[in-house]
Design a protein around this nucleic acid. Structure first.
Length: 457
RNA sequence: GGCCCUAUCGUCUAACGGUUAGGACAGCGCCCUUUCACGGCGUAAAUCCGGGUUCGAUUCCCGGUGGGGUCACCA
């Protein structure tokens, strides 16, 4: 596609914390660009900061990337490449591009150390950025920057340049917070005689207060969304869409589709805000594309044991409940939340019944508070249901057909509200026919009889 | 503050000199309806400001303003 035969991109996170969506958005673009161009995608853990790097963070990065489906073609740990960095350092010193400098250590110990500084040629560097266009920066005021603490403690700029060059990285796709670093690194490429790669600096992802996404201000690690039951393809879709668009009105993409249509040329030049509501919507759209079985197994995975312990719990009933619940959630973890708020208990255990709530509000103005009519309706509806053949109980529509004429003739609200409330004991719930279907003949009749009895008291 | 990047509905964005400035999310309204949810339909909402260039600027140029980033012996 340009001076390089094959595209090689990389994602180079440092394992010093849990990475959030903004970080992974960079990985997504880098990965998508590589796949789109038939190139390679390298994962390199930048763990040269021994003090702050932790294995658990590296594990989290690996897990998150795998979850998103961003498989890499090669894996490196920067710490394992120290010998290569040392060789480059020696070359730089030998060629006069770098020098040893005895300076007081900055750790406050007062001790003196020998640092390696780069001899800055102090020139104006211009590079063509694939998303931003030409960027010109005067490196004069950067001074002779430090490239290593000691010969075997290389610092960021040196390590990155040596690794990228030796790994054959052709396109550096990273956040625009690296723009200021680019001229320094280009200077190093030149001093080392390496071919300079292409750059694509992505606009940052901001939070609701227009600040760079950060853990400190509440940005969540990617695994947070995984644990809440968001679909990986939805996250990928959402991440790809913040700061990029296909130029069409299509918004829902599978991983394969993204790999087909992604292009750096359509990446936005200005920062975008992380929009959780859009993520909800995209996730729901992906949920809708799941099969009945897939939906059910996701929901099972998020169902707490406390629900399974309820007296009337059975997998068959849960399958019926799940179909209703699906309409009401935008991520599968909502099942856990609903269960925790005891919103699901009534599906699997006979709940407390509030007899006054049984009466449709418009009937409460009657002299007897509507008790008589409500009881009469329930007593009339009950036999309509009990006399139904067994087969009808496996079809909510059949149940509806049995009750509807009576409800229609006697006031739908007057009849259906108490029927629904008798079954659910909740002001808001699915309709009575769905509920009767869920509870089955025995469960439904027991609930209705109990409601009738409560109106005699 | 210096330097760099940037600017279309609240948000994500389309438009690559000529459009009634389009779509999506969120909002609001209506319909469906026993409640909730789903669904359907509809509605409101934007080119930061000032100069140029041009027959004509959302679009190109300059300035201002706003926003963001960055100024380590972190990455």
């Amino acid at each position: 596609m340009n001076k390089f035969d094959h595209v090689v991109t990389r994602f180079a996170p440092s394992p010093t914390g849990l990475l959030h969506g903004g970080n992974y958005r960079t990985a997504v673009f880098s990965y998508l660009f590589a796949r789109r161009t038939g190139g390679k995608f390298i994962l390199r853990i930048e763990d040269t900061d021994k003090a702050r790097s932790k294995k658990e963070y590296e594990d989290n990065i690996l897990e998150s990337l795998q979850w998103l489906g961003l498989e890499h073609d090669a894996f490196f740990r920067q710490s394992e490449r120290l010998p290569r960095h040392a060789i480059a350092l020696e070359r730089l010193i030998a060629s006069g591009h770098a020098y040893l400098s005895k300076e007081a250590a900055k750790d406050g110990s007062g001790a003196e150390r020998e640092l390696v500084r780069f001899r800055n040629p102090k020139k104006v560097v211009t590079f063509r950025d694939l998303v931003k266009g030409d960027i010109t920066i005067d490196t004069s005021d950067l001074g002779d920057f430090v490239i290593a603490r000691t010969m075997d403690e290389p610092l960021f700029h040196l390590a990155v340049v040596v690794d990228d060059a030796e790994m054959g990285v052709t396109h550096i796709v990273r956040g625009e917070d690296h723009i200021a670093n680019t001229p320094r690194q280009i200077l190093l490429y030149e001093a080392l005689g390496f071919p300079i790669p292409s750059y694509a600096h992505l606009p940052l992802v901001l939070d609701a207060s227009r600040q760079k996404l950060s853990k400190r201000r509440g940005a969540q690690p990617l695994t947070y969304y995984r644990d809440l039951g968001y679909l990986p393809e939805a996250l990928l879709n959402f991440l790809a869409l913040t700061g990029w668009n296909p130029g069409t009105e299509k918004e829902i993409f599978t991983r394969d589709e993204l790999r087909e249509v992604f292009e750096l040329a359509r990446v936005q030049t200005s920062p975008g805000i992380f929009n959780p509501e859009k993520l909800e919507w995209i996730n729901k759209e992906h949920m809708k594309r799941l099969s009945e079985d897939e939906r059910l197994s996701h929901m099972r995975a998020h169902l707490p044991d406390a629900i399974r312990a309820l007296p009337e719990f059975s997998e068959e009933r849960f399958a019926r409940v799940a179909r209703e619940l699906f309409e009401r959630i935008t991520h599968f973890g909502a099942i856990t939340e609903l269960a925790g708020a005891h919103e699901l208990d009534f599906y699997f255990a006979m709940p407390e019944l509030d007899a006054t709530q049984l009466i449709w509000k418009k009937l409460r103005e009657e002299p007897d508070g509507g008790v008589g009519k409500t009881r009469e309706h329930l007593e009339k509806v009950l036999p309509l249901l009990t006399e139904l053949p067994e087969a009808s109980w496996s079809d909510p529509e059949a149940l509806k057909a049995a009750v509807w004429p009576y409800a229609d003739a006697n006031g739908r609200g007057d009849v259906l509200w108490p029927l629904r409330y008798a079954l659910s004991s909740k002001e808001r719930s699915p309709d009575p026919f769905q509920l009767a279907f869920i509870f089955g003949k025995t469960g439904s009749i027991a609930r209705i009889e109990r409601a009738i009895a409560s109106l005699h008291a």
